[in-house]
Design a binder for these strands. Sequence first.
DNA 1: TTAATTTGTAATAAATCTGTAACAAATTAA
DNA 2: TTAATTTGTTACAGATTTATTACAAATTAA
Lengths: 226, 226
Amino acid sequence: MNGKIFIIEDEPSIIQLVQHNLEKEGFLVASSTNGNDGLKDLKKFEPNLLLLDWMLPDLSGIDICKNIRNNSSHKNLPIIMLTAKGEEEDKIKGLDSGVDDYLTKPFSFNELLARIKAVLRRYDPKVVSNSLEFEDLKLNRFEKRVFRKNIEIQLGPTEFRLLEFFLSNPKRVYSRDQILENVWPNNINVESRTIDVHIRRLRKSINIDNTKELIRTVRSSGYSLI
Amino acid sequence: MNGKIFIIEDEPSIIQLVQHNLEKEGFLVASSTNGNDGLKDLKKFEPNLLLLDWMLPDLSGIDICKNIRNNSSHKNLPIIMLTAKGEEEDKIKGLDSGVDDYLTKPFSFNELLARIKAVLRRYDPKVVSNSLEFEDLKLNRFEKRVFRKNIEIQLGPTEFRLLEFFLSNPKRVYSRDQILENVWPNNINVESRTIDVHIRRLRKSINIDNTKELIRTVRSSGYSLI
DNA sequence: TTAATTTGTAATAAATCTGTAACAAATTAA
DNA sequence: TTAATTTGTTACAGATTTATTACAAATTAA
């Protein structure tokens, strides 16, 4: 899955700009223009990262930040703080507010994107890249599409996640246990043999007109993407 | 198998970050968020290295460190200490706490990895690398592939483990008993002569187009990788 | 709701691996 | 030298692992 980003920021123009561009990058974006609503909506949305304005009409960014770090179930949510130029820059830097990074307005979108990716990479590397590729295989997380040789392939949800997992580390052999842990939802119990069947289904789907086999069986170890 | 690393650290976000990345590097990782549990679990896990937070809810890192150095069977366990910035940095440096290295938060994962590898290389070189090499032989643990002269060789599971074992200590002669203990699953009983047959099979596989024999028979002692 | 799709499991077939026995060859000891 | 010991080699039956198929239950879409 691709990343979800929540924005708490009172200037609609900034929200619009950032939201639009982030969505173009494949992120799912939601936002709020004040702190109290923001804290509430945050929980429903379960973002992978929060963009937080320093100056808000009700709460300060620091308050929100502390609130998140202390009370909520989002204790470890990565946060990037947005500040107006000169606005307590040093304070933030020095402060142990639990912010992961900060950016001074006005900023370019590319600047922001770079920071976001850097922070996400640190916390949750899976989230970052939208398109995974290996040889003539291409998977787009945002669009949930898979191509082989530029021909689109239809996969069921489980096959998609399975392929996504293999693509995150091509060539590496994964045991059935590892596959189970990473591809199936937590706390679900499926027979380890079930994986074989899904591998079979995935193979069938991605091997269009006798192209090269891309999934390797390693006896007594597991499977890998070639 | 590659190295095992145990983490004692009370911040879940750090554990998550480090664990995830170390696992991607091929380490087996376990962790604990407090000192007392950590000391207990440590013994079961038998790590090759310990990442230890300086400040913990119950015991201090120093306490744990001393405990390990004095009482336990892990007297020589390599330890890397993690400290918050400014947090007694000098004290640690100067202190004869028995720490092998230390790192100041916030740190980048690559920084940490470099330290870990350096320490492990010093103590236990076997553990570090994913790829084992000897002369024109190359074995990749992640990918479960073996090459001779860059030509891939197909091995059965037992032959793979056997070669992996020999590669962990080239030139050293292992008795059949030692081989049995290290290459076969525990509590399994096989005839000692069975090893000869697997040696034969391994030899056959890795000696492609009359290359040099790589497995040496040492009469009445065992076998070695040349 | 009904229809279509997806999912997990069981059953069976196919492929591969494993351990052992039997005998040959090499080495050592007497 | 011969006898004893150790290792090499082969073949093969049984065991293990994986592939494939079919099907019922669950989920999703229409």
